[in-house]
Design a protein around this nucleic acid. Structure first.
Lengths: 138, 138
DNA sequence: GCTTTCGTTTACGTAAACGTAACATATTCA
DNA sequence: TGAATATGTTACGTTTACGTAAACGAAAGC
């Protein structure tokens, strides 16, 4: 019973299903496999993707939206896959996470600055428009 | 007097100064010019960069950190440079800004998700380390 | 006067992230 | 059963964002 929970990794996807769901090409998915980002099982020659693979694909795409390269994304995967054991490893791991957090925080600051500036020009734009409408009706 | 304010665009930078300040190569700066992202004035053959150019360079680098391509960055510059006049233009402009905001907001969500997950594994990691230290002293 | 230093142009090279083409199986639906 | 559809492999092409090298001019320090 205990074991069965892990054995049942029920939902399985074909490459085409994933491609449609995430609106990417099958070529792209295979490319990610070549790059070591995905490792689907095989049934004969066909690739079978399970929950874990789907999650990974999601993470890849999110990472890309955030501007990370596939190499950087793979590094984080490798990190997660290692499951560090020694306390030396753990400390190293914590350091890497710190750096990653720094990077993400900086990106957040950049993002908020950009959003603030966008709001400003949005407002200016609206005011201009309002003035034009007023002129028109006058 | 009024006019003088605009004439005085005092601080002027050489390409090397900007390169050092932003920790990029002069090659990169010239490349941005080729791509139509910068337009420094010339003194003979030498490029002279002023405040406006410096601001632009800053925006380029921020855009890159956020994962935008140079093409996307140029588009926003072009948008800002146009200074829309007709109300038709203004409406279009507002639409573009809306899309941009949507994109940035989505990116912010992605970013916050990533940060939250990072915090989680950071904590798990710390707990593991604490346990190891406890074992060691036992 | 000579050599760094900074700048210029032109040209070719490269890594990343796929797109596209070509061709071979395999299944499925009418 | 024939055509359409999905999948596979291999290979070459393309765009982006620069790096690198060659070859030169002008100014600055010794």
């Amino acid at each position: 019973m205990e074991a069965a929970r892990h054995v049942i990794s029920a939902p399985v996807y074909t490459i085409g299903e994933l491609a449609r769901e995430f609106e990417i090409t099958t070529r792209t998915i295979r490319f990610y496999e070549d790059e070591g980002l995905l490792a689907p099982t095989r049934e004969g020659r066909k690739r079978l993707y399970r929950r874990r693979d789907r999650v990974r694909l999601k993470l890849i795409l999110r990472g890309k939206r955030l501007g990370f390269t596939l190499g950087e994304i793979r590094e984080t995967f490798d990190l997660y896959d290692q499951a560090p054991d020694g306390s030396r490893q753990l400390r190293y791991y914590l350091g890497v996470l710190d750096e990653k957090r720094e990077q993400l925080n900086r990106q957040r600051r950049d993002l908020e600055d950009a959003l603030a500036e966008l709001e400003q020009s949005y407002q200016r734009c609206q005011e201009l428009l309002a003035r034009q409408e007023a002129d028109k009706s006058a």
